[in-house]
Write a protein that binds this DNA or RNA. Structure first.
Lengths: 188, 188
DNA sequence: TCCATTTTTTACCTACCGGTCAGTAAAATA
DNA sequence: TATTTTACTGACCGGTAGGTAAAAAATGGA
C-alpha cells in the first residue's frame, strides 16, 4: 500500500470517529481499528493525536469553505452571493454532514487557550468566519444587508444556526429566517 | 460540613470543569480538586461520572429554562413574549454563560444514542426546545410569525444561534436578525 | 538477485482513568 | 453511656490511554 493511501485511510477514519465521539471521546486504538490499521502506524504518519486531530480539522474546514464559496463568483449581486452561500451550506449539510458534526463537537473547545491545538484550530475556524463576515460587510456597504447588522455576529449566526441533524424543512426555515433578517427593507 | 454543602460544591466544580473541557475532557480527580474535596467523596454523593454529569446537565438546563420563560406571562402579545425570550437569553449569556458553554460542549454528543446518559440528556434538551417551538407555533397561529416558518427549525435557530463567547453587539445582531426573520410582513 | 530504504507490525511502557472498599472520626440517636 | 449513622479518607484495583523501540516485511532501483 502506498504512502498516501494509508495516510488517507487514517485521516478518514479519524474524521469519522471524531465526528461521532469528539476529540476526547475517541482513542487512537479506535481510530486504528476503523482505519483497519495498527495503532503504531498512525504514529508513523502523525506525531501525536493532537497533530492528527488538527490535520483532520484543517482538512474538514478547507472542504467546507471550498463548498461554501465554490461558485459564488458566478453571482453578480450580493444578495445572490449570500443566497448561494446559504444554499451551499444546506447542500453540504445534507450530503456530507460529518464535517459539521466535528465542528459542532469541538466548537466549545475552541475557547481553550491553554492548549496549542485548540488555538490553532480556533484560528482556522476564525478565518472561515472572517470570510463570511467580509461578504456580509460588503453586502452591507452595498445597502443589500440592513445597516444595523454586525457582520461578525451575522457570520456566527450563519455558522451556528444550522444543525447537522436537522430535517430539510428545519434547514429551509433557518435559511429563510436568516435571509429575511439580514436584508435591508429597501431590498424587499 | 453539612451534606448539601459538599454536594453543592461538587456540582458547581463539575459544572465549571465540564463547561471548560467537556464531559470527556475532565477527570473525576480534576473535579475533586476544583471542589476542594477528595475524589472518593464524589462517589459518596454520586454513583458515577455519568450520574454526576447528568445532574449537572439537568440542573443547568432547568436554570436556563427558568430564565428564558421567567416572566413571559407578563407579556400579553406573542411578539412581546418572543422578544422577552430573546432578551432573557442574551441576559443569561452575558451574566452566567457557563450553562451555555456546557450545552455547546456537549451538543454534538446528544446524538449518541448508544449511551444512556446522552439519551437522557438529549431528552431534557428536547423538552426545552419543544417549549420554545410551541411558543413559535402559537405565535404563528396568531399570524405574528410568518407562515413559512417551521417552529422546530426556529427553536433550533434560537438555541444555537447565540454564542456564549460573543460580544454584546454580535448578540444584538443575532437577536435582531432572528426577530426580523421570524415575524410576518403584516407585523412590520 | 541483492541491498537500502520505506512501510508496517509486535511487544511493550508509564501514567492515569473511573471506580471500590475497608476503615474512621464525629455526630446523632437510643 | 452504648449504639448507630453520617461524612469522609487513602490505599488500591483492573483496565486503557497515548506513545515508543525495535524487529519484520514490503518495495524498488542497481
Amino acid at each position: 500500500m502506498t504512502q498516501n493511501d494509508s495516510r488517507l485511510k487514517i485521516i478518514n477514519a479519524a474524521r469519522k470517529a471524531f465526528a461521532e465521539k469528539g476529540h476526547d471521546g475517541v482513542s487512537m486504538s479506535e481510530i486504528a481499528q476503523i482505519a483497519g490499521v495498527k495503532k503504531s502506524l498512525i504514529y508513523y504518519y502523525f506525531p501525536s493525536k493532537e497533530d492528527l486531530f488538527f490535520d483532520v480539522w484543517e482538512f474538514s474546514i478547507d472542504e467546507l469553505e471550498g463548498h461554501l464559496f465554490g461558485d459564488i463568483e458566478g453571482e453578480s449581486k450580493y444578495l445572490g452571493k449570500i443566497k448561494k452561500v446559504l444554499k451551499s451550506y444546506i447542500d453540504f449539510l445534507t450530503s456530507r454532514n460529518e464535517v459539521k458534526k466535528i465542528i459542532l463537537m469541538e466548537k466549545g473547545n475552541l475557547s481553550r487557550i491553554d492548549e496549542n491545538t485548540w488555538i490553532k484550530a480556533s484560528k482556522r475556524y476564525d478565518d472561515l468566519k472572517k470570510r463570511i463576515s467580509e461578504l456580509i460587510l460588503r453586502a452591507k456597504e452595498a445597502d443589500v444587508v440592513a445597516d444595523d447588522v454586525d457582520p461578525k455576529g451575522a457570520a456566527e449566526l450563519i455558522l451556528n444556526g444550522f444543525n447537522p441533524f436537522s430535517s430539510v424543512e428545519e434547514m429551509k426555515t433557518v435559511e429563510e429566517i436568516i435571509l429575511r433578517g439580514l436584508i435591508s427593507k429597501k431590498e424587499i
